[in-house]
């Protein structure tokens, strides 16, 4: 069995098989310190787009439609994240099914995965995969993920451009997302716009977004119908415009610095989770009677050994 070093070299030469092997290591482990070092050292400037939204709004279909645009003259990676069942531990990864004949695009690399390990694994894994693809010469990565609304604080630091997808059926979503994604998504998409309810949703959204734009970027609302390709030119144009905006306003470096901060935080949380989880399993019962004090003791034990456990 070859080590990752030879796969890395082959991947740099553009060998698809080797690219896949490296992504599998990042997805499923075991992680290798030197591999991660190599990925971060390559300091890829890959343009990253995140596309998010609730289940059933048509994210995968939009992604499939965007493939042709994004893969013009460059290699594009798509990383599709799906949830894992907490009961069986299994996952159904159905994003590829929407690709249909686009799956055969010669400049597309598509990987679906369900995060494993800790609650922090998903975004950091996706981001690290994106960086690896950047190192291997890809021009753009699109990360497709399920957005849960307010709690998705880390999503905003995942990509250069974040696209939030809504559908007319999910009109109430706006209520749920008021202080979450709505506050910072860069582009809004109302997909399935051929269905009733698209216009009222657009007005409601316009109302919510009226205060946005202090950075100089007024987030556009795009109406699309991924199924018949309607509005795709315009959506791609909006993405390009945002990319251009970030570059010409010196905002891209700022974003990338916050990406790095988030990556460091997610790795920290992920490592802490693993350590603390092990400790918690073996924690004495009295720790749990006062969970607040118990937490302090477990943290102390996890990081300083046994001496402070009195």
């Amino acid at each position: 069995m070859k080590g990752w070093q030879s796969f890395f070299k082959e991947a740099l030469r553009g060998e698809e098989q080797a690219v896949a092997r490296i992504l599998t290591l990042l997805e499923r482990g075991p992680l290798d310190d030197d591999l991660l070092k190599k990925i971060y050292e390559s300091d890829s400037q890959i343009y990253t787009i995140a596309l998010t939204g609730s289940t059933g709004v048509g994210k995968s279909s939009l992604v499939a439609q965007l493939t042709d645009f994004l893969a013009r003259g460059q290699y594009v990676g798509i990383i599709a994240m799906d949830p894992r069942s907490s009961i069986s531990g299994g996952a159904f990864l159905g994003d590829r099914i929407r690709l249909k004949e686009k799956a055969q695009h010669p400049r597309l690399f598509f990987r679906s995965f369900a995060p494993r390990g800790t609650p922090f694994s998903g975004y950091i894994t996706a981001k690290t995969m994106a960086r690896a693809l950047g190192a291997f010469g890809f021009g753009c990565v699109l990360i497709e993920t399920q957005g849960a609304g307010q709690s998705d604080w880390s999503l905003q630091h995942l990509a250069d451009t974040t696209v939030l997808v809504l559908s007319p059926e999910g009109g109430d979503e706006i209520q749920m997302m008021k202080r979450g994604l709505i506050e910072w998504a860069d582009i809004f998409v109302i997909n399935k716009a051929d269905r009733p309810g698209a216009k009222p949703l657009e007005y409601a959204l316009m109302h919510e977004l009226k205060d946005r734009g202090h950075t100089g970027w007024k987030p556009p609302i795009m109406l699309t119908s991924a199924q018949n390709g309607q509005g795709m030119d315009e959506l791609f144009e909006a993405i390009e415009k945002h990319h251009h905006f970030l570059r010409t306003h010196g905002l891209i470096d700022q974003r990338r610095k916050s990406h790095q901060e988030l990556e460091c935080l997610l790795w920290t949380l992920s490592m802490t989770w693993q350590r603390v989880h092990r400790k918690l399993e073996h924690a004495p019962k009295q720790f749990l009677k006062n969970p607040y004090e118990g937490a302090k003791k477990i943290l102390a034990e996890a990081f300083h050994g046994r001496k402070k456990s009195s």
């Binding site: 997805e27 894992r84 996952a91 799956a103 598509f110 990987r111 369900a114």
Partner: peptide
């Protein structure tokens, strides 16, 4: 298990490409 379903009417080529990319 992690199950990827790539759909109906796939060519052998498309299936093997998907298997490769998905690892």
């Amino acid at each position: 298990m992690d199950v990827i379903y790539s759909g109906i009417k796939q060519t052998p080529e498309a299936i093997m490409d998907a298997a490769l990319q998905e690892g």
